[in-house]
């Protein structure tokens, strides 16, 4: 189906050799890579978020940069700045860490809104302006931003309008089985885990993206995707209305469609089936819904509501 490109499922297998468990994270990262969208990762510290991103970058021979977001971070710390070169007697541009194929924005909610918006603007426009010069970011360009859900002290919550820029949100959990934790301990040496050699190239990534864009989506499946997003708004099941303040935007529909196509490519198909849509819908919707305080008061996980919404729509 994808001429002159390796099968993306091989990349998935190579990722799994480094990252134990975390199937949702591995699938999510590959989907975002193929669908050409940015990822929001939420999970406690120490669950291999950074390692997963670094491993993915190594496997596709992509440049990788990690930025630790802190309250004193400045926009120029991310996009770059111009400094005066005394030897040349002129200003020169020093590109920031955003000039990489894969950028890990660690704890994005620790930086003030000005820095967040600088990053999000770059994500949207795929170019930055330093001084008076406009610089196009590398292609592929993928931002993986992490958020720590446990600590709220000194954090700046991302507004819904900004989280909407992320194609998907992946919830990273602790290992669920003792065997997984044992495997993690066994794989780690004193020097950490060595990164694997490249398995694919950036051209392969571009080929997967072209293939995803050509994946066929039958009208009934497209209507199912639309119905899923509509079910977060006017079509919300009656029992969930007290918990959802605002539903997902039409951008969510686009996200579901793009991710479903990427899911089909990952499965080696040239057409989308309802399973593709249903599989990707929670990741595309969970960060686009505004929940009421009642949800938190009743201690109901947001994903429970999202799953109920997805389950309320009958697939074709």
């Amino acid at each position: 189906m994808i001429p002159s490109a390796i099968d993306p499922s091989r990349l998935r297998a190579a990722l799994a050799e480094v990252i134990v468990g975390q199937d949702a994270v591995l699938d999510g990262l590959l989907l975002a890579l193929i669908a050409d969208g940015h990822v929001l990762l939420e999970g406690p510290p120490g669950v291999a978020k950074t390692l997963a991103c670094k491993t993915l970058a190594a496997l596709i021979a992509a440049s990788f940069q990690r930025v630790q977001f802190t309250p004193d971070l400045l926009p120029s710390d991310i996009v770059g700045t111009r400094i005066f070169d005394q030897r040349e007697g002129a200003f020169v541009t020093v590109p920031g860490p955003i000039f990489a194929n894969i950028v890990l924005a660690d704890e994005i909610n620790r930086a003030p809104a000005k820095v967040q918006s600088a990053l999000l603007e770059a994500m949207q426009e795929r170019q930055v302006t330093i001084g008076r010069e406009r610089h196009v970011l590398p292609d592929p360009f993928l931002v993986m931003a992490t958020m720590n859900p446990l600590e709220h002290e000194g954090t700046y919550a991302l507004p819904l309008a900004q989280t909407d820029r992320f194609l998907m949100k992946i919830d990273v959990e602790y290992p669920t089985r003792v065997e997984e934790e044992l495997a993690i301990v066994e794989r780690f040496s004193a020097d950490g885990i060595p990164l694997p050699p490249p398995l694919a190239t950036l051209d392969d990534v571009r080929a997967w993206r072209r293939a995803a864009a050509e994946v066929h989506m039958e009208d009934s499946v497209l209507r199912y995707a639309v119905a899923l997003v509509f079910a977060t708004r006017d079509g919300l099941p009656e029992e969930l209305r007290p918990y959802v303040h605002r539903g997902a935007s039409p951008r969510a529909t686009l996200a579901v469609v793009r991710l479903a196509r990427a899911h089909a490519v990952l499965a080696g198909r040239s057409f989308v089936i309802p399973d593709d849509v249903r599989s990707v819908a929670p990741a595309a919707l969970r960060h686009r819904l505004a929940f009421t305080h009642r949800l938190a008061m009743e201690n109901i996980p947001a994903d429970t509501v999202v799953s109920r919404i997805v389950g309320s729509v009958t697939p074709p």
């Binding site: 066929h216 039958e218 009934s220 499946v221 040239s270 057409f271």
Partner: peptide, 11 residues
Amino acid sequence: VERAAFCKDDL
């Protein structure tokens, strides 16, 4: 049958 239900028209 799933393939026939959702594949491209030319297939």
